[in-house]
Design a protein around this nucleic acid. Structure first.
Lengths: 187, 187
DNA sequence: ATAAGGAATTATCAAATGATAAGAAATGTC
DNA sequence: GACATTTCTTATCATTTGATAATTCCTTAT
């Protein structure tokens, strides 16, 4: 996923503002299983995924609960870090070797302060992430695991192929055994 | 909850920008049971709660699933509306007679375009809402109903007193009967 | 090609939750 | 204050889900 597309999909920037932003963004590649963010640590970077797939999980009672998958075009970010300079609860792990776009949070903040276009880009960025998580939240709250599995099958069949069943099960809030039972019904 | 506090808690604005914003905000009161937003409708307003308590619910299989409570100081907003001009999935109902601060989405957007301070205020607003919903999401994903009930007891005991058990149960994702059983254990 | 290790499925049983209904408590109304 | 209505609790039973373990399937390395 191309950097210009990622930026423009959030909010189309005039050339000058876009140049300011792109000046601060670097490309970087990491191998599978790299940890991008670690729970309870301060991090100061924001990533966008050019290529690859990642998962975010939280530790709860000795268990890893997966609550998000990111793939091409998605932003990888520890919100508590980014927004409040506080320690995040999530660990983010690469499930495949990944190519990423990286920017320092402080660079982003400096741009927000000085360029109204970038400030509005940052606003749209937060707003879009907000809508995304709200949709996941509603789905989590209103639908049972089977329904959410079907939803995933429709919206992102690719993901089901690229990600291990344990993680999908955790994401759906059920055990891998339960997910297997659900799958067995659709044959 | 005072309007100045609400605004400043999001992001302290210089006087001039703050005046621009406040110029567009009106106070209004509604009786209990008023519907502020209706699912699948376009709305074009944003509210902040001065006094009172509200709930947001989505309709799922003939059932109302409560997924949010708002009280003094909280923003009442249909995100899909506000962000994307799309129909929201939520209905928002006043559980008490409420006093509200109201602003038109289009007025807010005009300010974002023209004032970098207000643009950054809007960014912080979205970011803070994002962190709030992320916390609820993680709690929903990682904790079972009992734990989340305890969490609610600690963080917002007031809410438990002001809101009916059916709604709390729905919010926790269990039946009222189940919630009663949970309550009975803490006596 | 085959062996070894990891991942997914299936089976069995125990535990937790839901549905339904009936009773107790609280709230509102006249 | 007493009745009616709503809300909450308790009880019983059926269903669903989880835990554990055994088996099958798939991937990878040599």
């Amino acid at each position: 996923m191309n950097l210009d597309n990622i930026i423009d999909n959030i909010y189309p920037l005039p050339d000058r503002s876009k140049a300011l932003l792109k000046e601060r963004i670097y490309e970087i590649a990491y191998p599978k299983a790299t940890i991008l963010f670690r729970a309870n640590r301060i991090a100061s970077k924001v990533y966008f995924i050019k290529k690859g797939i990642v998962r975010a999980y939280a530790n709860q009672n000795e268990e890893e609960i997966t609550f998000w998958f990111g793939k091409e075009g998605d932003a990888v970010i520890s919100m508590k870090n980014y927004v409040e300079d506080q320690r995040g609860y999530e660990t983010i792990e690469l499930l495949e070797p990944c190519e990423l776009y990286e920017i320092q949070t402080e660079d982003l903040r400096a741009l927000y302060k000085n360029d109204i276009e970038v400030a509005n880009w940052g606003r749209k960025f937060a707003e879009q992430e907000l809508v995304k998580i709200e949709e996941r939240f509603i789905s989590r709250q209103c639908k049972v695991a089977v329904e959410r599995y079907k939803e995933l099958m429709n919206n992102d069949p690719d993901l089901l192929k690229r990600v291990q069943l344990v993680h999908i099960a955790s994401y759906l809030g059920i055990t891998p055994v339960s997910l297997s039972r659900i799958r067995a019904e659709f044959k």
